[in-house]
Amino acid sequence: MTLSRRGFIKVGGAAMTLPLLGGTAFGQAEKLKIGFIYVGSINDNGYNYAHNQGRLYVEENLGDAVETVFVENVPEGPDCERVVRELAQQGCKLIFATSFGFGDSVIKVAPEFPDVAFEHATGYMKADNVGLYNARFYEGRAVCGVIAGHMSQTAKAGYIGSFPIPEVVMGINSFVLAARQVNPEFTITPVYISTWNDPAKEADAARAMIDQGIDIIAQHTDGPAALQVAADRGIVGGFGQGADMSAFAPDTQLTAIIDHWGPHYLASAKAVLEGTWAPGDTWEGLKEDVVQMGPYHSKVPADVVTAAEAMRTGQIDGSVHIFTGPINDHTGTERVAAGVTMTDAELLSMDWYVEGVIPPA
């Protein structure tokens, strides 16, 4: 991962005294300082950009009651521990660590600052002052899969992934399950680039996929490089990840999965201000508006939009769950029986591919 100079960027106004509404250690009688840690740049036009929009959402809604700071381009590893500790030492009473690989650092530092509320995105380790939050990205990928199943001329998609962790595997599986409901011959080939954001690697992976006859590209990486390659090569299309990336590939993005973190960040900040914060464990999606779909491109046919909307609204009202059996794995072995829906615990530990996925060599 390419690192840039890292610094704290502070935004805030005059202090504002708020009444304490709770008696926990997290009650605040003065301006609340909130820290955010990003694995990439806020200008990646994807995942980190979306988290930063959530930070700005908090400022817009709470004004002078809060001061926010952020550190971008923090690699997953020992450097994160230093950053987490520095944010706490600088007076942050609420800290959001926004990448999976930050978990070990948060768990190590949190006991040193029992009066600080920590929240870790997409993680799994909790503590007395460490909560978890996540988004059901797989719901958006099911919508994208419906579009791909209808529009691909080769019935072949590629998926550029960061790491083969459950969150990413789940997204690959959701995409191809939805696509194969439309076209049972549909396949998807994942490629992992071992980073969340490396435009050169993303672009190279996209080129290699297109050379192999793939005409739809999806991704679980942070930037628009793959979409730009897709646009240059004139394939059917791809999907924005984390944010609307249509500005970078206006004729190629078919829709986008948009991460809308603002409501969660606002609720957590209010809870700390009111003294009611507790280490929760939330996993919200389309229904809660934490996952949103971007506009459908005009070249997506009306009947395909209708089908995509059926998938989107079905997941919202609970009538559709993409991980309901029968589901076979990529070897043809049944993993989920007919009529059975996988539990959240099973999804969050998913380490196998469904039928239609061509595993990486």
Rank of each mutant, 00 (worst) to 15 (best):
E309I: 01
K287V: 09
A308D: 01
L254M: 02
Y265A: 06
E288Y: 10
L273V: 06
S298Q: 15
G280P: 11
A302I: 08
A302N: 10
L286E: 06
M293D: 00
W283F: 09
E274D: 15
P279N: 08
D259V: 06
I258P: 01
E274R: 14
A271M: 08
A278E: 14
M293R: 01
G280S: 14
T255Y: 00
A310R: 15
P279Y: 15
H264V: 10
Y265M: 12
L266K: 10
K299C: 10
A269V: 11
V272Q: 04
H297E: 03
T276F: 04
L266F: 14
V304C: 04
A310Y: 14
T282Y: 13
T252D: 04
H264Q: 15
E284P: 07
D251A: 12
G280L: 12
D281E: 13
E288P: 10
A308P: 00
D303A: 03
E284H: 12
G318W: 14
R312N: 00
A249W: 03
V291L: 08
P295A: 06
P295I: 02
I258N: 01
A249G: 01
E288D: 11
D281W: 15
R312P: 00
A271Y: 08
E274F: 09
G262D: 11
S298M: 10
Q292T: 03
V290N: 10
H260E: 09
E288S: 09
S268A: 12
I258F: 00
G318Y: 15
W283Q: 06
Q315N: 02
P301M: 07
L273H: 12
M293C: 01
V291K: 09
Q315K: 06
A269K: 12
E309W: 04
G318S: 07
E288L: 09
T282R: 13
P250E: 04
S319Q: 07
G285E: 05
T252Y: 05
H260F: 15
Y296T: 00
W261T: 06
T313H: 11
T276S: 05
I257T: 02
S298E: 15
D317S: 06
A310V: 09
A307W: 08
M293N: 00
T306M: 11
T313I: 12
A256R: 00
A271S: 13
T255D: 02
D251R: 14
D303Y: 08
T313W: 12
